[in-house]
Design a protein around this nucleic acid. Structure first.
Lengths: 263, 263
DNA sequence: CGAACCTTTGACGCAAATCAACTCGCGTGG
DNA sequence: CCACGCGAGTTGATTTGCGTCAAAGGTTCG
């Protein structure tokens, strides 16, 4: 019986980290172990952790969508981050004693809890893994910066098309797109909270987007017929996603992608 | 001759990290060595590093103010981060191969360059230091999130007063405030680029702020007569700055603040 | 003492918020 | 099976916060 092929994994985190540097079979096994540790489920709209609580574990989104959000005393709400499958919630958050924001489930959600000890053990034994997790964390910060540019400088039309573009590219990098389509469970109300707009204006803006045939959303599936057109319309510069396999000098020797294609 | 007292340092980074956990004399010495490594100077408005360039070192702001900024193809500019004395530019940036934004000097600027090797050596020998640097990095992310809330949900008046409030508290934590005053070299144009507003509207908003006697700015010095009033006006919740000495369980035994006050 | 840069002021226009119905699909229960 | 409620999306009328344009003061510095 042949060794199990180290082919594209269906583990979303492995897929993601592979964007940075190809992991060895052992690195992958370590990630698998981390993800299997302890699983937690939430219903849509539940809070995963609330402002003021103490963060004790690192969480990994195994399946479903979630977001970080904050709000002002008077109720105005702002989503400040979006978690897609394979995303990590805050490497090393436990350094802080108190959450300054909420994490909430958007859809039904499955999370893996990674304890501090398991994390430290895994990264000590697998330095390439630590590098990759660092990369992930720096990309998260880069996305936050791009969102600042979005809110501060783009029009409503550009903000929303930019967001759709980012979501598609992130999902594709996580192996969760099919051709020009991907799942899309966001309501216009959440998009409004991300883009800092009213739901009414999001609705109107979507009509303009549809009129230009840039994006089609039906049955929780988004289709982008011409990604280049969408990128142009939203002034999208993909450099902030750092998806061009920047850590390739770290690639493991036994990793797929180094060797001749096998199938 | 007595041993030099381990009293509040004039090194801005030490002051800052002390907010999290009190450093030992050796930790402090290690930080001092890092900061002394190689010094670089810039004139106001120079770029420290440009989009597309490769980050090779960690930089520390020894003196002066700087910012991160991005811009859109058509010239719209957005400041996405502000560096005050003692701030670190991106722990571990060298994991990324290409900058996705600019770092520019606001005032005349003195930076310390910290090489990867020196950084790794120092943190290996001083684990408390690594924890403290992690804390700093997580606070930077928290500030980015608060800025998202600012741009997405606050009015022009709230955005600007919130920014002024944040700057004062950050400077005070770095030991750079005197009573109700601190230095304030920002022009209205930069504030506009931070707050996503036009310079004209920043000017008008400042008049309203002055009318309410919340802030006074004269000769590059800002005075806040009633910080509580300013916080109320800007819906300011200081939790995101994580200044409440959250890592106190890590305090070094020989650190000041543990022992009875000496003077 | 003049030039560059910053700030202020006024007039006008527009993008997006607000308020208020109204529709549509969907699940639930009487 | 229909009534009902509810969340999500749409539409129109109106208001408003902020941008834009243009010009005039103020400040700072070579």
């Amino acid at each position: 019986m042949p060794v199990a092929p180290a082919s594209p994994s269906n583990n979303p985190l492995i897929r993601r980290l592979d964007n940075y540097a190809r992991l060895s079979a052992e690195d992958r096994a370590a990630v698998q172990r981390l993800c299997a540790e302890k699983v937690q489920r939430f219903a849509a709209k539940d809070d995963v952790i609330r402002e003021g609580e103490e963060p004790r574990v690192i969480r990994l989104v195994v399946d479903g969508w979630a977001c970080r959000y904050k709000h002002l005393e008077d109720g105005r709400r702002q989503v400040v981050g979006l978690f897609l499958p394979g995303d990590l919630c805050d490497l090393n958050v436990f350094v802080l004693r108190e959450m300054d924001h909420f994490v909430g489930a958007i859809t039904a959600l499955t999370l893996a809890q990674i304890t501090r000890d398991a994390f430290e053990e895994a990264t000590l034994a697998h330095p390439r893994l630590l590098q990759s997790l660092w990369w992930d964390s720096l990309v998260t910060m880069a996305i936050q910066r791009e969102w600042l540019l979005n809110l501060g400088s783009r029009t409503a039309f550009e903000r929303i098309t930019h967001l759709l573009c980012e979501i598609f590219l992130r999902l594709r990098a996580a192996g969760r797109a099919r051709g020009q389509s991907c799942e899309f469970p966001l309501t216009q109300a959440i998009i409004a909270d991300i883009a800092g707009l009213s739901t009414v204006h999001v609705s109107r803006t979507f009509q303009a987007i549809r009129d230009e045939r840039l994006v089609e959303i039906r049955n929780r599936v988004m289709t982008i017929p011409d990604i280049d057109a969408l990128m142009a319309a939203s002034l999208f510069n993909p450099n902030y996603l750092h998806l061009s396999h920047e850590g390739r000098h770290l690639d493991a020797n036994d990793a797929p992608g180094d060797v001749a294609p096998t199938v």
